[in-house]
Design a protein around this nucleic acid. Structure first.
Lengths: 363, 363
DNA sequence: TTCGAAAATGTCACCGGTGTCAATCCTTAT
DNA sequence: ATAAGGATTGACACCGGTGACATTTTCGAA
């Protein structure tokens, strides 16, 4: 028998794949399929997808029902083409510590979970003269929705300038307030340095040294300044010859520590500007025949996974890196939702006392 | 005065932005601009972009000149929409070691440099029941050009099956030959295990133990089998109570080593299935009051950066992880270029002798 | 009941490419 | 010189959405 205008006529087949009725289900439903079934224009469906407030509740519900039934999801490529804006979030990084990088990635991915956005990696070699140009061309070509810049890329002023010109939103993660209009995740590295200084002072240390990062990193100065401030509070000073650069790298940490130990009166406590250099200090200290923490105490910064894997475990200043990554991504997404986003989110570091620090031995 | 058909007519303005002539330069040139200036159809330009062989050399040269002049680059989003295939390469991973992950990423990025492809991260929690579905939906939505699966995701058969159904190309990185039609990067983990065994045997060790990874990892079995094979060659056997699981994690390594040391006759050499567990073994061994390598030798696997940062530096089996990532991406790209790609690329591990192994002490 | 502004919804071109297939241009064999 | 047949090139719809603007509803005020 024949049904004139039976339920199937909801699919008057204007789209070639809508032949078997359920053919819509398999493969991929498009906005046209939804529009047809909901008996509205695709533009209205588009409005629902984009949460436009100008759709009647009843219409919205009906369309949402069809969307759910079809399992429709808008095509990111098509949307990107029409909007001239892709659904990619770029992580532009240049960080010597793999631990840091992975943690940031994790955090961003936490925040992106369940959204349409994807995280794309864009390492950046700041020593190359064309690093800004490369990022610009990435932006022009792929039109990322936003960028996240952890240190030290976050401190690159020429880059920030270029980004302001370009049509991208971005969030920077840095230890100091930067003078650009961008939003940022701020870490109070100074407070972290102070916590390290206070901890060593409270243990009774007087011969204290510092291995700092490259002078080109703002965090280097922040951490050191906080450290010295805390020492000053208990009447201690960081003598100039007790401050050595370690480049934020393991090897740099080794040689910086060697340099400190070679002095007439070697330190009994070392505050390294990051865990990587602290790990290097471990090696140098042991190679010189000293014990940790009996002879020399060591404090790191970051609390990357390696801190807990050393023996003894490293006392360090913890930065909630993963959470920071997550916060950065969230800040970016809020723009997407049209919400008025906060300009800053601040994170405070805290000291994690483990086995690498102890009261100094009596001479 | 008036120029009929002056040079400007090369831009008969069919595109709104082509008003000022050089307006084409600023912003972004499209295929239409190229076609107009080269006086050919956009389809022909498309052919040139895609290196179709059916374009006369002269035409090709002319178009290429225009492309260069305009600095034209095809829009990835538009191409993706038309081809139903994006320019994303997905890294689907689930690996406990951050070092490994970063190295793989680096390698992939090395290979992607200069291409239109972007690397997107897609962590995958294999313990969740819907992990395959999530990846499927990622594929359906974002239509990635290809996926790269390092261990242990590479060993997930249900996933591989789903991927074969789906419309994606993928490359797996694994230690054994897998029975699917996909291409893969193969590592000879067995040889690595054998190298470790041979090294310890040559040093004169007899009381040897092994901390292995999870039984669900193929590499666990490969590494152990190779290790035992090498021992057998010198008449040694790995006694059952000398083989303990450490889950490929740091904590697992600690407790596995503790278990070994608690035995009536503790081992004088330990081969850990990865560096992460070897690091854990360091801690347990020291906590128990033994020295490395004087009392106990330790060998790791992978040669992740941490190996060189321990004290003494860890003797380990090096896997060229970064190169493997790069090779995987290259394999994927070769399909893009229509080249006949190799099915397998094999990498051999090699032992890196550092400070954590020495001849056994006399009892 | 009627009118007008606000609220909803629709129309249609366009984003920047690619696929399909028809049209045109060269060669070479006859 | 000429037709056949492959080599080139072009026309045009379409990929799956969005933007700008037009049109239709809806509803309170007059």
């Amino acid at each position: 028998m024949k049904h004139e205008g039976d339920p199937e006529d909801a699919l008057p087949s204007s789209s070639p794949q809508a032949v078997g009725g359920e053919a819509v289900l398999r493969g991929k439903a498009t906005i046209n399929d939804v529009a047809r079934l909901a008996k509205v224009s695709k533009k209205t469906v588009s409005r629902v997808i984009n949460e436009s407030p100008f759709v009647k509740q009843k219409t919205r519900d009906a369309i949402k029902a069809v969307i759910a039934e079809l399992g429709f999801t808008p095509d990111p490529q098509a949307r990107a083409l029409a909007r001239r804006k892709s659904f990619l979030i770029g992580l532009v990084y240049d960080n010597p510590s793999p631990q840091y990088v992975v943690s940031i990635q994790r955090g961003i991915l936490d925040a992106l979970e369940g959204t349409d956005f994807q995280l794309v990696l864009h390492p950046c070699d700041r020593s190359k003269p064309d690093h800004v140009a490369r990022i610009q061309s990435f932006i022009q070509q792929h039109k990322p929705f936003g960028l996240i810049l952890p240190p030290s890329v976050s401190e690159d002023e020429p880059l920030a300038l270029a980004l302001n010109e370009a049509d991208v939103d971005y969030v920077r993660i840095a230890s100091v307030e930067l003078d650009t209009p961008s939003r940022m995740i701020r870490t109070l590295d100074g407070d972290g340095g102070a916590a390290a200084g206070r901890h060593l002072a409270e243990l009774g240390h007087r011969h204290i040294a510092h291995i700092h990062g490259p002078l080109s990193f703002r965090s280097t100065h922040e951490r050191r300044a906080g450290f010295e401030r805390a020492l000053a509070e208990t009447g201690l000073v960081l003598r100039p010859e007790m401050a050595v650069e370690g480049g934020y790298t393991f090897d740099g940490g080794v040689s910086a520590a060697e340099q400190l130990l070679a002095q007439p009166q070697p330190p009994k406590a070392i505050f390294a500007g990051n865990d990587e250099m602290a790990t290097g200090a471990y090696v140098a200290v042991r190679r010189a025949g000293f014990r940790i923490p009996e002879d020399i105490s060591i404090v790191g910064f970051d609390d990357t996974p390696i801190a807990g894997r050393l023996w003894p475990a490293l006392t360090t200043v913890r930065l909630p890196i993963r959470e920071m990554g997550s916060a950065a991504a969230t800040l970016l997404l809020q723009t997407a939702e049209g919400m008025k986003a906060k300009k800053f989110i601040t994170f405070s570091p805290e000291i994690v006392v483990r086995g690498s620090t102890a009261a100094p031995s009596k001479d």
